[in-house]
Nucleic acid binder design. Structure first.
Lengths: 222, 222, 222, 222
DNA sequence: TATGAATGAGGCTTCATTCAT
DNA sequence: AATGAATGAAGCCTCATTCAT
């Protein structure tokens, strides 16, 4: 489930109004807006709808975020921040290269699957030619660690002779991302056209194993 | 370039009005609408904008397609039809399994890259939970051949001992699709976050080779 | 009374709707909008209020004028056009210079007084730093005749020895305008601070005579 | 330059917050508000904008002035007070009537030109039908001296035989005001329609001389 | 078959103002 | 005396769609 959903609503029912809690109001809006934008796209999302699902009023959206674009931009940043934050607890340093890469791949596969709203927002952003991503310095920085993490593993693997030496960490990241992303982004169309087999519990488990194997075979010495 | 663009306009300049050419009008609208939907999404596309870029009037859109949804549905079907039609001339039967699979993968990679509007429409459709794909019998049929084509290759490869026997044609199709699709769908966000390296001429050539190799290693006996 | 008011409403009651009469709808809106802008200023006027006083709907305002600014711009142009059109029937060529100038001045004085909405729009435009006037080629052209008319009279007066030769038509126009304009533009504040004496029937008649005399004395040989 | 601007800010830089200086806060707001109202009109001025340009907060505006109308009313009174105060140092008693009237006219011409914000506020007030002026006893009193000053000069001029006896001080005041006011109030529209000639340094000097001459010729015996 | 005119519903945003501290 | 947070009401504008010819 989206990690986004369950924060900020603990123990407060719909009718409760905020009393001077700026950060709470901001988060409340952000959480709701993330879901709405992810669900309906930028043009499809409705400020009225977002406001209605909030514990505050439409007016506050403008108070805190300026306009719809500003809200979307903040939602996008927040989405990246949350997803990247979720990756922090990954301790791969102790593992040998092959195990580390398998773990990272499987983790990414699961992580993407656990954050469909994030995936959808990235899709939406791509549809919009990255207009908002372009202007976010914050997001760019968040992604640098993704590469350096792989770089560490890859170097060790090359040194140990497990991995072939003619690849770049970027290319490996690309492969892991592509397979993990597509699994979520195209789930609907793929299953409609080719059946649900790959999206059952078992199907996903098998797919995850295959994806990991694909990556490992790809980087393997031979 | 999008194959969509250049059909249907041959021999008619911009200012010309249609006179008694229903099919021409329909195609004119369809071509324009495909670009607009692909460019702006379902909610983002504007009937007014589509009409303006057409050689006919807004009223005709309603005349031929009923409403915006109807137009989108027809655009989607047309997009699938065009893309699948482009795959027909692929003669893989004469090739040995490895060459056939490499050819198919590389072709898919290129084909997706040549049809960004199609990719975008599929993304959009996924964002909309496949609401329109669901209702299209036509599209489902179009995709069956994709699997059977792979099935032919895979069987021969297993028989020849080149491919391992524990896979399904569907899983192979999924891999080829994922890598080819992601290359186009996430180009904007990926290059914004990680640089343009993979999207230069050379970068794409390398990526294509890697993708083909990935698929071949994945199905290889060992 | 404002010449604006009585056109376009002849013989049609409030409930009547237009049936395919674009020019009628346009004029209806323009007439109402002119009054509203003149009465309340650009920011003060309300699109809703304008629409309500119209025989058509708010939507049509946007259909024909794009937005509030566009409507204001067209109102401004229309106001200038109407006022200048009202000046056309002035036949001064037959009169000797002194009589011609007196006639012109008195006419201008009356004309301004008869078009308070126009005066108010010009005031409003000045408050807005002429932002809309700047972009209207139409209006600039309309005003050229005003100067050339005076030029004709002045030349004849100089030739006849009635007028002194060291003036410019522009300066004369400025004086006539200033006195005629101020009479309307500052009527409210002036009468509030200094009493109504100048704004009674008799007061205005006297003022008009004085204004004409002022102008004549100003251009007189000695 | 507007006299309004530079008062009240002496010795305090932008970032400084007020601490226990009610009168300073009031003046700060008043100065900013005068510019905003003069620049944008009553409906056009924004409380938020005024607050932002102030060294204090929006809340204080309401604390000191009640509401937007109250602020505007106080701004208007302050504007009249400042302008009239600037006229006090005019010593005309010693001059002979013709010189006195010329001096007064030229002074008025300059004075209006030096206080464009005041002129604009008067225009705005006229557009609003003097709704606020009506309720200000203060302003009415301020203007009585303007008439009595002219009365003194005029009486002496009639007595000396320089001026004709059939005029009223009010009519003379009206003329001086009209010409001096129009020069500022309609500067934008006039120069847009008829060129900048009258608004250059030289143009204004000439205009001032002409205005003075106009007034003198107007009151002259013959 | 074709079209310009017309529209209701609903979208986004701004404004002056008040609340709670 | 001073402030940041909060707000209802109302403003402007856009959208897909239908009407009348």
């Amino acid at each position: 489930m989206d990690a986004v959903r369950d924060s900020a609503e603990a123990g407060a029912n719909r009718r409760t109004r905020w009393k001077q809690d700026p950060e709470g109001v901001r988060r409340d809006i952000l959480v709701v807006a993330m879901n709405e934008f992810a669900e309906n796209g930028l043009s499809g999302a409705r400020i009225d709808e977002i406001a209605a699902k909030t514990r505050t009023s439409k007016r506050m959206i403008y108070y805190y975020f300026g306009d719809k674009d500003g809200l979307y931009r903040d939602v996008l940043e927040e989405a990246y921040r949350q997803v990247r934050a979720g990756e922090e607890n990954l301790h791969l340093a102790d593992l040998e290269p092959v195990a580390a890469l398998r773990t990272l791949t499987e983790f990414t596969f699961d992580h993407h699957r656990d954050h469909p709203s994030f995936i959808r927002l990235v899709m939406i952003e791509n549809i919009h030619h990255g207009d908002y991503l372009k202007h976010s310095e914050v997001i760019r920085k968040l992604n640098e660690t993704a590469i350096s993490r792989i770089e560490g593993i890859y170097r060790k693997g090359v040194a140990s002779g497990d991995f072939r030496p003619d690849l770049t960490p970027l290319a490996i990241h690309w492969q892991i991302s592509a397979l993990s992303f597509f699994n979520v982004s195209n789930r609907v169309s793929f299953s409609l056209l080719f059946g649900q087999d790959l999206y059952t519990e078992a199907g996903q488990a098998g797919l995850k194993a295959q994806v990991a194997e694909t990556v490992l075979r790809f980087v393997a010495r031979r």
